[in-house]
Write a protein that binds this DNA or RNA. Structure first.
Length: 283
DNA sequence: ACCCACCCCTGGGCGC
DNA sequence: TGCGCCCAGGGGTGGG
């Protein structure tokens, strides 16, 4: 569930807490956390030992740390991943997967992940953009995001508009929460066929998505429980600003109609039945 | 080329 | 009390 704002909060914490420091030791406690590093946990640790972290970067929900070797320590938090910067003396977390110590013997970096959908890998020559995430589109907060290309590609799809918002090769960083919030603001039902969304409406939807991501980031992101936190273990406050997501039965902030929950692709969608009527032929 | 169903995983909550 | 089921859900993969 960490989406763009939550991942950006983590990136800022990594920049502050880890950039400029040199890795002394890497302990992989759970192999699944490095499953994308096909050469294995040993190789993962070998490539990192002695390397200095140059910066912390992000595209959509992916993070990477460019290293002085030219490689990049790349990761995705999945649904429950945390990157914590904590004193080495702090007791080990129940779901600690990888532990990084630094040569300055200061606070260490820990990758903690209950559901193990997340993971880290070292990508060769990945400093500028790791090859493993090159297929991911820019996100709406990226200055080089091309709005008109998004509008064109959205309308060229034969799918539903919510599916399109969640397609990370079209626009990245948006997950279930912010998709529902952007659709509520745009007064669009997620099942609306993409080819029937007019150009102005597509632009408006993108603009709402950008706004909701920006507003959430300013609040430190959304934290439904202790799983979604910064590198300092702090939860965000945007949950209180949500209009649709998780509000089944509560009155719509625009018209007062109770928010509905619909089963959708093995998960849930929240919307206002009046402001966001179901299309005749939903996708 | 594109779309979509399926699968990976754990723990909290709830019904029986 | 305890068991089993459902739910949270991002993204890679493979089938259509």
């Amino acid at each position: 569930m960490p989406e763009l704002p939550e991942v950006e909060v983590v990136r800022l914490g990594l920049e502050k807490g880890v950039a400029g420091r040199t890795i002394a030791k890497v302990d992989v406690h759970h192999d699944r956390a490095v499953r994308r590093h096909t050469a294995g946990a040993r190789d993962f640790a070998d490539l990192l030992r002695g390397r200095t972290v140059l910066a912390a970067r992000r595209r959509g929900k992916y993070l990477w740390l460019p290293l002085d070797s030219g490689d990049a320590l790349t990761g995705h938090l999945g649904m429950s991943g945390q990157l914590l910067v904590v004193p080495a003396s702090k007791p080990i977390e129940a779901h600690l997967r990888i532990r990084f110590a630094f040569t300055d013997e200061g606070r260490e970096l820990r990758f903690v992940d209950q559901r193990t959908f997340g993971g880290l890998q070292v990508v060769a020559a990945g400093a500028e953009l790791p090859s493993t995430i090159a297929h991911i589109a820019r996100d709406p907060l990226d200055p080089e995001f091309d709005d008109e290309q998004f509008v064109r590609r959205l309308r060229a799809k034969t799918s539903g508009v919510k599916r399109a918002l969640l397609d990370q090769t079209l626009v990245s960083g948006i997950g279930n929460i912010y998709a529902d919030e952007a659709l509520w603001r745009a007064e669009l039902h997620g099942g609306r066929p993409t080819e029937l969304v007019t150009k102005p409406k597509a632009r408006e939807l993108l603009s709402h998505a950008r706004d909701v991501l920006t507003e959430s980031l300013a609040q430190g992101g959304t934290s439904f429980d202790a799983l979604y936190v910064s590198t300092e273990g702090v939860s965000g406050l945007f949950e209180r600003s949500l209009h649709a997501y998780g509000r089944e039965g509560e009155p719509c902030d625009r018209c007062g109609t109770p928010i509905r929950r619909e089963a959708w692709m093995n998960r849930s969608s929240y919307s206002c039945p009046r402001c966001q009527p179901r299309p005749r032929y939903p996708r």
